[in-house]
Simulated assay, not measured.
Amino acid sequence: MKSTTRRTLAAVVTGVAAALGAAATPAAAAGAIPVPVPLDGAETALGMELPEVAGELPVLTPGAPEGPRYVEGRLLPERTLPQLPVSGGLPGVDVRQPLPHVLGDDFDHAAVDAPAAGLRALAPGLSLDAPLSAPDGEGAGLPTTKLPQAGVLAPVVQTVPTAGLGVGPGL
């Protein structure tokens, strides 16, 4: 293959990789992806006003787990199977329903707004210890036997969801 052909091919591959990276960055940078629910066709077919519905789907991003910690006196590290952190969010929704002036002329719609809430989670982990102690100076430097230890690191979920309910003019 000629060097000119190689350079052209390298330039094309580089350009495609840059374009794909630039296209993927905005979706990953956003905490949630908006999801509109089109009901215009149903409104036309039914001949009535339907609610406006929109949602948000979170983008989950796994983090780097903390590595095992070595503790004096144990043969195995403290976190044998570390917990994996995951951050993302809860899905959000925005619904607006038209009202036929039931509450007066100033109230044309009822709305529920529950935006996507941040979410932080840790997967369960495992901590084990061998049935042998660490070698010591007594007994010719050989380890002694002991009861094995096993522990489960509980999963953790942290979030603060919010929602709003209201009525007002206009849709």
Rank of each mutant, 00 (worst) to 15 (best):
G73R: 06
G73Q: 06
R74F: 14
L75R: 13
L75K: 10
P77C: 09
E78I: 00
E78F: 15
P82Y: 02
P82E: 07
Q83D: 11
Q83A: 10
L84C: 10
L84W: 10
P85G: 05
V86G: 09
V86M: 13
V86F: 15
S87F: 13
S87Y: 15
G88E: 14
G89A: 11
G89E: 10
L90W: 15
G92T: 11
V93E: 04
V93C: 04
R96K: 15
Q97M: 15
P98H: 00
P98E: 05
P98R: 06
L99E: 03
L99D: 03
L99R: 07
P100L: 12
P100M: 11
H101W: 12
L103C: 05
L103S: 03
G104Y: 05
D105H: 10
D108H: 04
H109I: 13
A110P: 04
A110C: 03
A110S: 02
A111L: 05
A111K: 08
D113M: 14
D113W: 13
D113C: 14
P115H: 02
P115I: 04
A117D: 00
A117T: 00
R120T: 07
A121P: 08
A121T: 08
A121Y: 04
L122I: 01
L122E: 06
L122G: 00
A123I: 02
P124I: 02
G125K: 02
L126K: 03
L126T: 06
S127D: 07
L128E: 05
L128G: 05
D129L: 02
A130Y: 13
P131Q: 05
L132Q: 08
L132M: 07
A134G: 12
P135G: 04
G137C: 09
E138T: 11
E138P: 08
E138F: 12
G139F: 03
A140D: 10
G141L: 05
G141A: 02
P143I: 09
P143W: 01
